[in-house]
Write a protein that binds this DNA or RNA. Structure first.
Length: 431
DNA sequence: TCTGGGGTCCTAGGACCC
DNA sequence: TCTGGGGTCCTAGGACCC
C-alpha cells in the first residue's frame, strides 16, 4: 500500500502561513520575472485564472477581483518543504520525496494499523497543518498511480475530509469513474487527445484498455505500466529518499533574463552565475559531474527563425564539483555557441553523469584526486553559508569590469521576505 | 511592452571508433 | 550485381511530471 501526501496550492499556502490576511482571499504566485502564474489559491482558481498563464493576459481579471499576486520566494518554499518532509519521514518506514510538495509513503505491512489506515492519514494531515500551516490531501492505494488518483479525488471532494483510501475493488472502481482521463498521472495533452479520439474519456475506461492498445498509443512500455497500475498491479516501486533529501540525476540552473542581452560579457556573467549555482547544488548532494551542457535561447515568441535554442556539451576530463572548473568549461562552451549580432533571452547550465562522493574516478593528472579544489569549495560554501549567498563568488559571474553586474537579473517586485532562512528577514512583532 | 524553472525517460541521426 | 556490427558521443527533440 502506498500513501501520497500532496500539499494543497503549495506556494500560496506557504505565503499564507506568514500572512494570515491572505486567508480566504484570491492569491496567486508568479514565476521568475513575475512572468506566469505558477500557484493559485482555490479562490483564484474559481475566478478562472489558468495555471501557467502569463500575467499580462490575466491582469484585467486580477485587477478587477483584487487578486493578490506575489513573486515567487523559493527560499521560503524550500524551507517549508523541508519541514513538511522531515515530519513525514518520521511517520512511515520509507518515503520518496516526489517533488517540492509531494511525497510517497510506503505503508507496507501497515494495513493492520489500528484503528485504521484512514485514521493514520487523518492524523498526518492534522499534524502537518499544526506544525507548518500547510493543508494537505492524502491518497492511499495499492499502486502509486492509484494513490495519485485517490489524492486527486480527495482534493475535489471536500466531503472526504482530505483522505481517500482505495482498499477494495468497489472503491477503486468508484474513484476511477470520478477522474477524467487527462487527469490521470502520466496522461498529458498529446495522449489525452489521442485517447479521446479513441473514445476513452475516463480513468475507468482507460483501466479497461488492452495492453496492446496501451503500448501502441501511450509510449510503449510506459503506457502498459500505466494501465496495469490503474488495475491495481504495482509496476512502480518506491525510490526512498535518504535522510529526507532528494538525490538528482541531473542538476540545472536556467533563467530567462530580465531583458534581452546581446553582449558576450553580459551573457557570460549569467552563465558563470548559473554554473556556480548548479555547482553549489551538486556539492550539497555530494556528487561530481562528468558532463556539462550550456544552452542559449533566442525569443521563441519573436521573429527569429528556429531553432531558438542551441546547446553545447562537453564530457569533462575528470568528474568535478568545483565551481572554478565548471565555470571555466562553461565559458568555453558559451564561446562555441556565441553568434555575434543575435539577441538572447535565456541561458542555462545543466550538469549530468554524476559520480558519488566515495566512488569518484581518480585522474592521472590530478594526483591528489582534486582534494585541494574540494577543500577550497568547502571553504567557499562555508563562507557563503555564514555571510549570506554570493558573499564570495567567481569574478566572471559579476560580468564586465566597470559595468553594472547582473545585467541578466530580472524583477521580482512583489517578493515576500525569507521569513525562515535569513536572520535579517525574520518576522518582527511589535509589542 | 509583458510568455518559468527544474526534473525524468525515451528516441534518433550523424560522426567517429574498433 | 555485392558494401558489417556494435559501440559511444553529441545534438536535438518529444513526451511526461511538478
Amino acid at each position: 500500500m502506498y500513501g501520497l501526501v500532496d500539499c494543497n496550492n503549495f506556494y500560496v499556502s506557504c505565503e499564507r502561513a506568514f500572512q494570515p490576511r491572505l486567508e480566504n482571499k484570491p492569491v496567486v504566485v508568479l514565476s521568475n520575472n513575475d512572468g506566469c502564474i505558477v500557484s493559485r489559491s482555490a479562490e483564484a482558481k474559481a475566478l478562472g485564472i489558468p495555471m501557467g498563464e502569463p500575467l499580462f493576459k490575466v491582469r484585467p481579471l486580477i485587477e478587477q477581483h483584487d487578486v493578490h499576486a506575489l513573486s515567487s520566494n523559493y527560499a521560503l518554499y524550500g524551507d517549508m518543504s523541508g519541514r513538511v518532509m522531515s515530519y513525514l519521514a518520521s511517520q512511515a518506514p520509507e518515503m520518496e520525496i516526489y517533488s517540492v510538495d509531494e511525497a510517497f509513503l510506503s505503508l507496507h505491512g501497515m494495513g493492520l494499523l489500528q484503528p485504521s489506515l484512514e485514521a493514520y492519514a487523518r492524523d498526518i494531515r492534522k499534524e502537518v497543518k499544526r506544525r507548518t500551516h500547510i493543508p494537505t490531501c492524502i491518497g492511499l492505494a495499492p499502486t502509486k498511480t492509484l494513490a495519485k488518483l485517490a489524492n486527486r479525488v480527495a482534493k475535489k471532494n471536500a466531503s472526504l475530509g482530505g483522505v481517500l483510501l482505495l482498499d477494495s475493488p468497489e472503491r477503486r472502481q468508484w474513484a476511477l469513474e470520478q477522474v477524467a482521463v487527462e487527469d490521470v498521472w502520466g496522461i498529458g495533452r498529446q495522449y489525452a487527445t489521442k485517447l479521446y479520439s479513441l473514445g476513452i474519456t475516463t480513468a475507468a475506461s482507460l483501466s479497461r484498455c488492452s495492453e496492446a492498445m496501451a503500448r501502441k498509443h501511450l509510449g510503449g512500455v510506459v503506457g502498459a505500466r500505466l494501465v496495469r497500475e490503474l488495475q491495481g498491479y504495482p509496476c512502480h516501486g518506491l525510490a526512498p529518499s535518504e535522510d529526507g533529501t532528494l538525490k538528482r540525476k541531473s542538476i540545472a540552473c536556467t533563467r530567462t533574463f530580465g531583458k534581452p542581452l546581446a553582449r558576450f560579457e553580459d551573457v557570460l556573467g549569467a552563465v558563470a552565475a548559473f554554473a556556480s549555482r548548479a555547482a553549489e547544488k551538486l556539492r550539497r548532494q555530494e556528487s561530481a559531474a562528468n558532463v556539462l551542457t550550456v544552452f542559449l535561447s533566442q525569443n521563441r515568441f519573436g521573429t527569429a527563425p528556429p531553432p531558438h535554442t542551441r546547446s553545447a556539451q562537453v564530457t569533462l576530463p575528470i568528474a568535478t564539483s568545483s565551481t572554478l572548473e565548471l565555470v571555466r568549461f562553461a565559458r568555453a562552451l558559451l564561446g562555441r555557441l556565441w553568434q555575434p549580432g543575435l539577441v538572447y533571452v535565456k541561458a542555462g547550465v545543466i550538469l549530468d553523469g554524476f559520480e558519488e562522493g566515495e566512488q569518484k574516478q581518480l585522474s592521472l593528472f590530478a594526483p591528489d584526486g582534486g582534494e585541494r579544489a574540494e577543500r577550497l569549495m568547502h571553504k567557499l560554501d562555508a563562507l557563503n553559508a555564514r555571510f549570506g549567498k554570493n558573499s564570495v563568488q567567481v569574478a566572471t559571474a559579476l560580468g564586465a569590469v566597470g559595468k553594472q553586474p547582473g545585467a541578466w537579473k530580472g524583477q521580482q517586485q512583489r517578493r515576500t521576505p525569507a521569513y525562515t532562512t535569513d536572520w535579517n528577514q525574520l518576522w518582527t512583532i511589535n509589542s
